[in-house]
Design a protein around this nucleic acid. Structure first.
Lengths: 246, 246
DNA sequence: CTAATAGTGTCTGTTAGACACTATATA
DNA sequence: TATATAGTGTCTAACAGACACTATTAG
């Protein structure tokens, strides 16, 4: 091979650089349905279109730190676990120029999102509606078509969550601190797009030990006023090796 | 929220841009052990250190296309399926400046790699040696410590493959066109880092229908000269709904 | 009472692996 | 012959889901 390894060049200046952005798919649960946080763009391109939260990478920060900063600045949410999805790098994806975007996603309960960003009129929650193998977005009666390639990003995030949720504790982030096993099962069924076996789901979840020794624990408290038998509320607690709460 | 959505600015020029590179973890099988393709750097930083194949993103190409181009230019390998791993964006990861790298990985048989790049003296195959929960790299008696953050990239690629290989056809890419079921099982065991049940592995693999209707099919040919009972050679073939080869 | 959901017991088919056994090449 | 790997049969435990049943609230 005769060509030299490009990175060996001592001077980086010769290499053209794209802009590097981060977009954030923030999922939450409203009325037992998945929603994604969006914002209405004011300027071209895609003025008046809804897009994901996003921003450009700042010098000195990692892309994950950038995603957390965007979440903090635009939705006032801090301490959320953000996962990197992948780079979207179609040269035509941004009409303004050469912009590569690293998509990230996070799951958060509506409670937390509402407390943090509830007064922000620029933010919207678009409902994610299964539509055959794909999904569409809806806000009230409106059908939402996101700007840029953000529709594809949302699809990719949903696919990633679907593949990785298997008996993980990822779904708990969508629920409030206390929840019933039925609500938990509903979240799994929403994400997986299929119904699960109730006795087996309950047995397995209650026997499961998640990362850091976290387990589901009954609280002794029960739902009220739901015109049917009350359900016990559970919480995620850290336990020691013997299973006692600590 | 008072701050404006940064991407709404009509002029991108105000945003500082990192360099965007692609690094490629190319895995292959030599003497029944996993190896990763590396190159010795000639210039600072990390002169004389081994690093992954890599290059800077060109205008007009996606990061996946860039990874395929690097593979083609530096190892003369074309038509290889490349998967995106993730972005590595530590601001300190490259002493020359602000360089974000999108790591990709690919699996290829030693046969193909040897035919394509066998005469290139700048390329080396470092052996991947399990070392507790982590892995180390070796070349003969030498312990290899890669330059940049390429050691972490290799670890991340191995973790990703380990998580995604489950009954997928990913491992076939490491083997020649014809192979024994024992060789196939060995690849799975190498990647998963544990031994598998022989009767079950064979039954399940032979009954499995992979993507695009691909199946394992006995060739009627057998290994020779191995001082024990010969094993039948199998190939991956595309079949129609009735299971007949097409 | 009915409607609706909570929670459990049992049965069955599949998955995964343990173990043991026979088969067949080379040296 | 010994040795090493190829390939198979059977048994068992865990996993996953089907189905049915009882329990308990509001109205």
């Amino acid at each position: 091979m005769s060509t030299q390894f490009p990175a060996a060049a001592p001077d980086l200046a010769q290499y053209p650089r794209p802009h590097l952005a981060v977009d954030l798919i923030l999922l939450t649960l409203v009325d037992a349905q998945l929603h994604v946080l969006m914002i209405e763009r004011e300027e071209e391109p895609f003025a008046r279109k809804w897009v994901l939260l996003g921003g450009f990478l700042h010098p000195g920060e990692t892309v994950e730190a950038c995603a957390r900063r965007v979440l903090s600045e635009k939705a006032h949410l801090d301490g959320i676990k953000v996962r990197q999805l992948r780079a979207f790098s179609d040269p035509q994806r941004d009409p303004r120029g050469w912009v590569v975007s690293i998509a990230h996603f996070a799951l958060v309960s509506y409670q937390m999102l509402h407390d943090a960003a509830g007064d922000n009129e620029a933010l919207f929650l678009a409902e994610i509606v299964p539509d055959g193998d794909a999904t569409t977005l809806r806000y009230g009666d409106q059908h939402i078509v996101p700007g840029f390639d953000h529709g594809a990003m949302i699809e990719a995030a949903l696919a990633e969550i679907r593949e990785s949720i298997d008996w993980s504790m990822a779904a708990f982030a969508l629920l409030p601190r206390s929840f019933t096993l039925h609500e938990l099962q509903h979240v799994y069924e929403l994400i997986l797009g299929k119904s699960l076996n109730k006795p087996y789901f309950r047995k397995k979840m209650l026997g499961q030990i998640f990362a850091d020794g976290l387990r589901l624990q009954p609280t002794g408290r029960w739902t009220e006023g739901r015109r049917h038998r009350p359900a016990e509320l559970y919480e995620l607690v850290k336990t020691n090796a013997e299973g006692a709460a600590i």
